[in-house]
Structures are given as C-alpha cells and as structure tokens.
Amino acid sequence: MACCAFALYLLTQLLAPLGWLRDRLIGAPTATASASVAWSPGATASATATAMAIAAPVSRRRGLLLAILALEIVGAGVAVAAPAALPADDAARLAQLHQSLCSSVFGRSQ
C-alpha cells in the first residue's frame, strides 16, 4: 500500500518534534537492517528475520523502557476504549480504513 506509506511519511513530518523528544527521553531506536537488503534468491522469511535480528540488537535498558511505555499506552487505550465494541476482524477493519482514506485519494494502491 504505497499510498499509505506516503500518508505515513506526511505524518512522520508532522510528528518529527515528538520523535526528537523521544530520542532525548528514552534514546533513539537502534537502526534495523533492511529486509530488502538481506534478501537473496531463495531466501526464506525466517532467514531474513534472523539476519535482521542479528543486525538489530536492542539494549536491555531500552527494551525495559519501551515495555513500560507500551504498557502505559495499552492501559490508557483500554481505559478509553473499554465501552466500545471490539472489531470482529482487525484485517477487515484495516482494509476498510485503507479503502475509505487512501483509495479514495490515490485510487487502487500499488
């Protein structure tokens, strides 16, 4: 969904100050290896994932901080969304979202 990637780029531009804040508070995320670069003819997905994991070690301290942050976000989300009904099919909802937002602007995604 290239159009979604484009939308994501615009979003990242707007959220750049938050990224700056995150880098100063909990440190910048470790660079991850590109799956496309790790690709080789006949490579399996697990081999690529292993290569990426080797190239992207995450420090224990940062992992702990990220886990705490994730718990906080999940907790806040649950508190806010508890009365609402959960979607029956997340994939269907994602496709619906894509259909309503991106497809109307960009046409069929590439």
Partner: peptide, 10 residues
C-alpha cells in the same frame, strides 16, 4: 521484486 524496497513511487 525480491530485494527491492517498495515504499512510494514519488
């Protein structure tokens, strides 16, 4: 298109 980055085409 194995081994290519497919993100946006702009």
């Amino acid at each position: 298109w194995g081994g290519f980055d497919i993100i946006d085409q702009f």
